[in-house]
Design a protein around this nucleic acid. Sequence first.
RNA 1: GGUCGGAUGGUAGAGAGGCUAUACACAGGUCUGCAAAACCUGCUACACCGGUUCGAACCCGGUUCCGACCUCCA
Length: 492
Amino acid sequence: MTITRELKIKNTLSGEKEIFKPITEGKIGMYVCGPTVYSYVHMGNVRTFTSFDVIYRYLCYLGYKVRYVRNITDVGHLVGDVDEGEDKIAQKARLEQLEPMEVVQKYTNDFHDVMLTMNNIPPSIEPTATGHILEQIEWVQQIIKEGLAYEVNGSVYFDVLKYNSEHPYGELSGRKIEDLLSNTRELDGQSDKRNPLDFAIWKKAEPQHIMRWNSPWGEGFPGWHLECSVMSTKYLGETFDIHGGGMDLKFPHHECEIAQAVACCGTKPVNYWMHTNMLTMNGVKMSKSAGNSFLPNELFAGDHELLEQPYSPMTVRFFFLMSHYSSQVDFSNEALQAAEKGLKKMTTAYELLQNMNAESFTGSGDSETAKRIQNSCEMCHVKMCDDFNTPEMVAAMFDLCSVINSIENKQIKITDLDAGTFELLNNTFSGFLLDVMGIKIESDANDEGNEEAVNILMEVRGLLRAEKNYALSDLIRDKMAEAGIEVKDGKG
RNA sequence: GGUCGGAUGGUAGAGAGGCUAUACACAGGUCUGCAAAACCUGCUACACCGGUUCGAACCCGGUUCCGACCUCCA
């Protein structure tokens, strides 16, 4: 399969929308920074992973063979200051009186459940930091060998100043080393670092620290930034196509990744950096530390004081799609309710589409209607190829909804378009809704016997209406409404 | 304080020099036994002050407000 469409991606490294060129034609290596599994993922996390899921889906839809790697951080991520903080997993293990690996398993399971509920496709590879300790040690050795890291008291630090004398540090986040230096807080004298900007690539384990591995520098554990460099290189190569993550990881995490990779491999690791924007709550970034985060299950159950009702996973997914991944999104009941209705419009149109068939269309492919359909179908692609502009793509999809409804209502006649254009409509609408947007259709009548019974009732009611026995037909409608099944009569 | 981003109709949210975004809400209409749905129409908005231009929401300068990062965060 050859990919004919030109895709543009906003590269955070250059700040420009660039034409995407994969390293190997037809193939893409994509790495996304995954969660640190020390507690339940919140909706802000989910938004980022859902954004990249749609990006992954569309790349596949275009025909690329994508290797999608998303890690699980299960060691090395410290609480608070990088030098003094406790490991997040270890802290949680202490607090919950669990083995660290029990903590990891518990929250990894939760993460997987949520991803599945949101209909996110699992990555091709989901490596863990603890599964790559040896490789990380090798990297530390190599960086020391290159003269860009130094060991102090069993810990190894990356020498940012020295690195900066040879390569620019701060390119991705647009920072200058002098500004960074003048902004750093004073060292409290406890640190082993030569310079406050240096970061740990290997940390000595204090006696009470439970997660520890042998290394040439004594027992310890890897620094947080290192794992992503090591695992992305291992599975995608020294330079790969796309690296994604939340904007909040740009500095210092991704900046450190670049520095480590250049130090160790001598090449820039990534061609296209992509960053998703934050989910906010009353305009303020949702985060665990700010205490303003929603858990997915609270949202799905409506179990939160700020929620007026429950919102289904697909409603939330659609809500995310209605804004661009690079924009901030604010959570509100009104916006979620609008998304719920919009999604219903989409899925209803999809169901109507299932009952139509191409052969019945006998018109021309040059008609006004046919052209409108062709244009909107094309727009779906054009907009997605323009840096994954999901809101514009959704707008084109809504136009196709109107078309489908008009066909159903006979306002568009079967002589108004040809079978080929209908096929295009069918393939595009279904493909974008299911495969690209990743909307899962939840059927109302979930068991077949039930559906059969509903059909019989509808038939009887139709006969009653034909006899103008509206008292009985309305009674059936009311009773069915009580049972949660909406009846909508067409005309005639 | 430094760096970056943003202020769009009742709400959410795209766009980015001349061309309807879209959805939700609201109003009117068509259809309909009624209701609902659907379809059509309307709601003609771009923080403020200057400037560039035949023309600015969009470019430039300034002002105000907001956010992110600079410390763990998707």
